[in-house]
Nucleic acid binder design. Structure first.
Lengths: 154, 154
DNA sequence: GTACAAATCACCCGAAAGTATGACCGGTTT
DNA sequence: AAACCGGTCATACTTTCGGGTGATTTGTAC
């Protein structure tokens, strides 16, 4: 029953919309019959209404048109990169510190890392400091080099 | 839900039957009314027509969603590093600048690079500045990343 | 011989990176 | 409850980097 509801929700909605339209139509009919004129306006309203319905229906029912564009991307070792979790736990490097290391390796500045991780610059500095300690290095470039050697980053 | 279906199947069936009856009745009613209601038929036709128009419009006007598929092209496993001299000359990177880049990638500071190359710190700075310009980067970490991508360094 | 690129060095300044230290909070462990 | 860890943030300070500018030397190509 639930599946039915999901699968045919659109159809149900369409039905309901049609019903609503008919009611509206009826109402409009009465209005204009009483006024005894303006059939064109009536027809026009109907046309606009049902055009809108058609648009809505089409948007609702059709699968989005897709155009597939292939783009070549140069990839070297990132494809077969397998993170060395053993070393990671051995050195006691936390998730956050690894994230910082990854962004460092991508050439991000501390400020950029802070923005990307939604933390303050000082926090990034703390993380990187701890990271350097754990990796036993003193510069980000060394950290990157060692990180790659230890397979902590691609 | 399944239990519900089993328990109330009869009730459901009855309800559905009633509904079917009502629909049938309505349909019969319409059959006989339709002759007297040419205007309604006309309106109905209009409605259907413009619904069609709406559908057509929507299909015609919606932008196709573009999906970019990135095809990965393996470049090099970095083990058997082959320097990309073409890119090197294209970018006009000199021998000395490349040496600086290599040492940078090994994690050396400018001072360490200066010591290793037996030149002054200022010279290293000049080299690295020119290197950054040619690589179109603004930080040594970016230079390293780009250098590796362009196969200027292992 | 001169024009040119590469390499060398210097000085200044501001920005970024890194060090040291302390603090707070929310979980988890003991 | 207390200890601990990971994550967060802060201040203060030092060092390193990077940009800008200018200068000299040297080898090479025209």
């Amino acid at each position: 029953m639930k599946l039915f509801l999901i699968r045919y929700r659109t159809i149900l909605l369409t039905g309901l919309s049609l019903a609503g339209m008919l009611v509206l139509l009826r109402w409009l009919e009465l209005r204009f019959l009483i006024l005894d004129h303006a059939l064109e306006v009536y027809i026009g309203a109907i046309a606009i209404l049902f055009t809108g319905l058609g648009v809505w229906l089409a948007l609702k029912l059709t699968k989005p048109k897709t155009v597939i564009v292939e783009r070549q991307v140069l990839v070297s070792p990132a494809v077969d990169f397998q993170l060395n979790e053993t070393t990671l736990t051995e050195l006691g490097i936390s998730k956050r510190e690894l994230e910082v290391l990854e962004l460092m390796a991508q050439g991000c500045s501390n400020q950029e890392i802070a923005n990307r991780l939604f933390v303050s610059l000082n926090t990034v500095k703390t993380h990187s400091s701890r990271l350097f300690e754990k990796l036993d290095v003193s510069r980000r470039t060394q950290a990157i080099e060692k990180g790659k050697r230890l397979l902590l980053i691609p």
